[in-house]
Design a protein around this nucleic acid. Structure first.
Lengths: 111, 111
DNA sequence: CTTCATGTACGACTTGCATCGTACCTGAAG
DNA sequence: CTTCAGGTACGATGCAAGTCGTACATGAAG
């Protein structure tokens, strides 16, 4: 029941280059935007994001997000959970998550 | 004497994906970090950044930064000036420039 | 004019990366 | 046990991007 938690680098070791590279992809950014919008930071299933890509590619993207230090993955064996590392991100790069929310209001929004 | 100013998209049209893609490259990020650190926002020559890459590649990188809306290029014909679009960036993505300054304190810094 | 430094245009090369096909593993349900 | 869904590992593929070589344009200096 208790799965092993896979985490990337520690909070102080987060690399801004890796973070920007991770957030450069549309699919990964949409995942992060959803996670950042949920203030409860509840654990989510990794197929609850409705990504229009195959399973293998999703695995790849979640790995990139984890290695960038943005999320933690909880491995249950045949299932996987995703959790946003909000505290660590805010500690190392304050304001980054707020920035993700600023994507719609004025950008692609029809207003 | 007065060169033509080349600017990318307007402030409201800045795309977060393009911005992250632009900042994902080490060389472009170093340029932006230097620009963000100079609070006077003075115009700078484009070879004042000591980039360890060829002229052609520098041209390419500055073009990417301009098309992402992060800088403006002033064309003097045989010379070029670089200016940070601080106001526009702060208006659309407040806190982004501050984030660039957070690269050293705790990351690659020797402490 | 010629010379020179700066920057660009075009093309080629190489690397990185997103994507998917196939095969395999894991745990739950039957 | 078998079946099945969720996830991973590995390899292949196609495309985007960083890099540079060659050639050319621009304006200043001589």
């Amino acid at each position: 029941m208790a799965g092993r938690t896979l985490v990337g680098p520690e909070a102080d070791a987060l690399d801004l280059g890796a973070v920007f590279r991770a957030l450069a992809d549309e699919h990964r950014r949409s995942v992060m935007t959803e996670l950042a919008a949920d203030r409860s930071d509840s654990e989510r299933g990794c197929n609850s994001f409705d990504l229009p890509i195959s399973k293998q590619t999703q695995t790849h993207h979640f790995r990139v997000l984890r290695e960038a230090g943005l999320i933690a993955e909880i491995d249950y064996g045949n299932r996987k959970g995703i959790r946003l590392r909000r505290a660590d991100i805010e500690k190392r790069f304050p304001g980054l998550l707020t920035l993700l929310g600023a994507e719609s209001p004025g950008g692609t929004a029809p207003r």
